[in-house]
Design a protein around this nucleic acid. Structure first.
Lengths: 104, 104
DNA sequence: GAATCAAATAAGTGTATGCTTATCTGTTGG
DNA sequence: CCAACAGATAAGCATACACTTATTTGATTC
């Protein structure tokens, strides 16, 4: 749930691949594993890390456990970026300004 | 320069603190160190990691070496977020849509 | 309710990482 | 030039981490 945990979770390429696969849609651990050259426990461990970081949620469906991306999981990182938005490229910065104007 | 390197660089709390201090403005290694309870070599090592990740740049000024945040350093991460913007909170998502409409 | 299968946990291992102290490098000001 | 000082590098260490194989847990289906 905190920045460090999320950054760490996304810092590992394999784990980021797992996350990216879940972005495609809800999947169980076996489906997540397809195409990735790691053992079943490895996937399970990665999913635990992602879950603890608040990036994914699990949902039991019969014998399987489905994993879904948590829509709010990335929020802390977005907030962090927001705090240093001075250094964002102009394109994004422009966007932000726009929102403020619209909120008024 | 690649996502993994940047995520890793920002995943360490001390190193992220170093980066955040540089966001305040150009500083030399000694100034960066102030208030942080780590040795001089530790700071030097953190700065090297940040520099290799493309997040900061160094600039010799006499006997000192000044460090500055690289404005484009975060771009790869922003692009990554962009790729998964489906899961951004609605507020931001709305913004994006708006921009597109305005571009037309 | 026993067999089956998905997924988690246990235990162990090699490597990466963040830190330290000690030393070296390089630039400057007297 | 050389003394002084900023910062980098070397070397070593303890811990964290990503992975493996082996085993356990837990739910379903026959």
């Amino acid at each position: 749930m905190n920045e460090t945990e999320i950054f760490k979770a996304l810092a590992d390429p394999t784990r980021r691949a797992v996350f990216e696969r879940l972005v495609e849609g809800e999947k169980n651990a076996t489906q997540v594993r397809e195409g990735l050259d790691v053992s079943q426990p490895a996937i399970s461990q990665h999913l635990t890390v992602l879950r603890k970081a608040g990036l994914v949620r699990e949902r039991r469906v019969g014998r399987h456990v489905n994993y879904v991306v948590d829509p709010n999981g990335l929020t802390p990182l977005l907030d962090w970026f927001d705090r240093y938005r001075v250094y964002w490229p102009a394109r994004i910065e422009r966007l932000k300004t726009l929102l403020k104007e619209l909120d008024q």
